[in-house]
Design a binder for these strands. Structure first.
Lengths: 221, 221
DNA sequence: GCTTTATGGATAGTTATACTCTCCATATGA
DNA sequence: TCATATGGAGAGTATAACTATCCATAAAGC
């Protein structure tokens, strides 16, 4: 197919597709003449993935490129791929806590990882995010959340076990690579959305039922 | 304190603080004369919260303003506040799936919520995100993830129960409001970071141990 | 065969966001 | 008293993500 059909089928405008081609988010089609190229279903699929990463996961274009590059390099093992996706997806966090709080958080995280027996590289980008988040939680007085790390980690471990198993069982290496990307990034959105809904449900159950008389914004059930 | 000290103590530059004042992210200090104002520890704290939302949660300034407005309106119940924070935090997702996939996803989500007995408003923003995410998962061939909704929801419910309880037990209504914001937004980062670490750990355990000789981070298989 | 539309490729322009800079009249502090 | 800081307002800047315009050529419709 040519760019027009690719555009129609994906819902992405032709100029935007051209932009993605320039930015390396989409490989160019096979040229049949100097100004005609042939795009395949693989291009369509890739384009859908790009839109998912940009529109749904809100990754910046530069990060999407990083993700896709690691996806296309076939010299990586599954574990290597997972690491590459993590690095592409997790930017080094802007420092948002003061150094004191960060130091304490670092110690807490180190201890936590050791207690858990988690085999992770000490410079994994997620660790920096975790440290910064905990440091901020402490300086904002929500140490209770930071102290529940194990509760969250238990669930995270269960998720990870299922997810890694599911991904590893795919037959085709290309599918594996793509699945890592999709599962890591869209899975996060899924969990976040469900958590918000659960908040609504639980707050309705715990807070409206027992006492409180009339709310306005909400229908009282 | 005056703006200089606020800047030194928060690590935020004076021009940026002025920008936040203009944008309504920070209430102005009490004027003692036409060009002298007095800032308090509450300002410092608010500023730290703003930086956390911007640097750590990557909320755009306009969203931060929405969040803080709902935080400052004291006419809302706890449940109302939670809803307001959700709305401020969850942008309507860009359509990233085709209409067919979205329709199917909508049905799946409706059924799922009913089966769970979750009392949520049908136009909760998280539902739209959930629908769009599931639609994309389907059109990218990862229906297995979308089919595990209950696994994720079980965990989300456990999280929510703890979190809502913790927040509701705060004595001061102002603290409650702020806790909702912090817990909702930073809690998500916490969970996401732990999930990534768990991925690393689990992939090391499941994939390196069984067979493969020595990985270093790359190659082999 | 001829006109209209579409295409690949390149370059320039646009919009939005998040600051950052410059002024100015006034206030503070050494 | 005089350099420095302040509140407030307006203009300027950097970056990201498109969007528009050109052009020579190719395909499609008549």
């Amino acid at each position: 197919m040519r760019i027009g059909e690719l555009s129609r089928r994906s819902g992405v405008s032709v100029p935007t597709i051209k932009f993605y081609l320039r930015e390396g988010l989409l490989p160019s089609g096979e040229l049949t003449s100097p100004n005609q190229a042939n795009y395949t279903d693989a291009h369509l699929r890739r384009l859908q993935l790009v839109r998912a990463l940009i529109d749904l996961a809100h990754l910046p274009v530069a990060r999407v490129r990083d993700v896709l590059e690691s996806l296309d390099s076939d010299s990586l093992s599954l574990r290597g791929r997972i690491g590459a996706v993590h690095r592409a997806v997790t930017p080094a966090p802007q420092p948002a806590a003061d150094d004191g709080a960060r130091g304490a958080a670092e110690a807490q995280v180190r201890e936590f990882i050791e207690k858990r027996g988690w085999a992770v590289e000490p410079d994994a980008p997620a660790i920096a995010t975790l440290v910064e988040t905990i440091a901020v939680l402490h300086s904002l007085g929500r140490e209770d959340l930071a102290d529940q790390l194990d509760t969250y980690a238990d669930a995270a471990e269960r998720f990870a076990e299922r997810e890694v198993t599911a991904v590893a069982s795919r037959p085709d290496p290309d599918q594996i690579a793509e699945s890592v990307v999709i599962g890591t990034i869209l899975g996060e959105r899924l969990i976040a959305a469900l958590r918000l809904l659960a908040h609504e449900h639980v707050s309705a159950r715990l807070l409206d039922r027992p006492s409180a008389p009339s709310h306005r914004t909400e229908t009282t059930e």
